[in-house]
């Protein structure tokens, strides 16, 4: 029986889809069988970030309406042997998917795969409720900005109400801005949200360049962001991970500024 992990944030544009694509690819690289589920009905994006947009035939609403089997709607990634994606429908009918539908799909996928990674839409309405319905655990993505952290805090509260345990990824941190005192640090975000940290991904041009090509950064490998995403995937898989160097770097900055390095 696999694990279902929802990637969520409240605010849009903070890196949920990027994290879903990269963590899923990284887990597949590590040898796990992985399905990525695009839960952003109406604003399908995971397919283009993964570079699989030309191969879509069926989508989740076809499965729900019985037009095809779940297995038939899955697209297999050609770069990795054990990675699949279930595309979202582009329908604007907000009732096309219910939490029960999602729970059924996710449970069926968990029976045959190690990880089901769910890309949650922005917001806290129906799409969010659907996306968390089948999830065993959550990864909250936040950028070090007031609006993102505020929205993440709302989501953390809602996840707690639904008994979904959550961990944190701080995305798009700029070490030089933190050093200059012009960006919240990793430890600030941890302290405010009071979540366990999975990792911190730096702002990295390579994410934009690889996304342009429809290639998850972890498959190209070399960038700082890709390395940290790989580490986060290992932590998700429960592997012992070496002390992350760039995160150590942020912590040292924190100490130099006289901040507490760990949450209370």
């Amino acid at each position: 029986m696999g694990r279902a992990i929802v990637i969520t944030s409240g605010k849009g544009g903070v890196g949920k889809t990027t994290a879903t694509a990269n963590l899923g690819s990284a887990l597949a690289l590590l040898g796990h069988s992985v399905v990525l589920v695009d839960a952003d009905t109406g604003l399908r994006n995971l397919d283009v970030v993964m570079g699989l947009e030309n191969r879509i035939v069926y989508h989740s609403v076809d499965v729900i309406r019985g037009k095809c089997t779940l297995q038939k709607a899955l697209i297999k990634d050609r770069r990795l042997d054990n990675l699949w994606i279930l595309p979202a429908s582009q329908t604007d009918d907000k009732d096309a998917v219910t939490p029960d539908d999602m729970r059924r799909i996710v449970n069926e996928l968990k029976a045959t795969h190690d990880f089901v990674i769910i890309d949650c839409p922005a917001g806290i309405e129906q799409g969010f409720k659907n996306a968390i319905a089948g999830a065993d655990e959550a990864v909250v993505v936040a950028t070090p900005e007031v609006s993102s952290i505020r929205d993440a805090d709302r989501v953390v509260g809602l996840l707690a109400q639904s008994d979904v345990p959550a961990r944190l990824i701080v995305n798009r941190i700029s070490p030089h801005l933190v050093k200059r005192g012009d960006m919240l640090s990793q430890s600030d975000v941890i302290e405010i949200l009071a979540l366990e940290l999975l990792g911190t991904v730096p702002l990295d041009d390579q994410i934009i360049a690889t996304t342009n090509k429809g290639m998850p950064a972890v498959l190209e490998g070399k960038s700082l962001a890709a390395k940290e995403l790989m580490r986060i995937a290992k932590r998700l898989a429960g592997m012992e991970v070496e002390a992350p160097s760039d995160v150590g770097f942020f912590t040292r900055i924190g100490r130099a500024l006289g901040l507490s390095a760990s949450p209370a």
Binding site: V146, I149, R150, D153, V178, G181, D182
Partner: peptide
Amino acid sequence: KSSREVAKGRLQLVLAHDR
């Protein structure tokens, strides 16, 4: 205050009320 400290203070206030 650095903009980082200002942001942190604003967040703590806003979250206290949101919560």
